[in-house]
């Protein structure tokens, strides 16, 4: 499992815009680089990131080979009720990882 750093406020006010940050450890190998022996290193990237709130997708991003290693995404959301944020990264070679964080609305 890749290491991740997720930053979400534990509590937010109803209707308030809050920031979500998600950083994941991944080489994001472009597929264009030759290795020491001159062979092209096969592409190995995260292709899609999605964030869902109580099961409903609220943010998604398509990632490309131009994205740096260990991609860091910052976005905002608004919550009407308490629930669970889930974060899913999917990519080459069957890469798939999901993390969840609770959010309490007061």
């Amino acid at each position: 499992m890749a290491r991740v750093l997720i930053n979400v406020p534990r509590t937010v006010r109803r209707g308030e815009v809050f920031e979500i940050r998600a950083l994941i450890q991944h080489t994001m190998e472009t597929g264009y680089r030759p290795d020491a022996g001159g062979e092209v290193v096969p592409r190995d990237i995260i292709r899609r990131f999605a964030c869902a709130y109580n099961g409903e997708e609220v943010f998604a991003a398509e990632l490309s080979p131009a994205v740096a290693a260990n991609p860091f995404l910052v976005f905002t959301a608004v919550a009407a009720e308490s629930g669970t944020l889930s974060f899913t990264w999917t990519g080459d070679n069957g890469f798939s990882q999901t993390e969840t964080r609770p959010v309490a609305v007061e």
Partner: peptide, 13 residues
């Protein structure tokens, strides 16, 4: 910011 500093991934590891 420890939630933006990628070095913290290795600290976890």
């Amino acid at each position: 910011d420890d939630t933006a500093n990628p070095g913290m991934l290795w600290v976890q590891e």
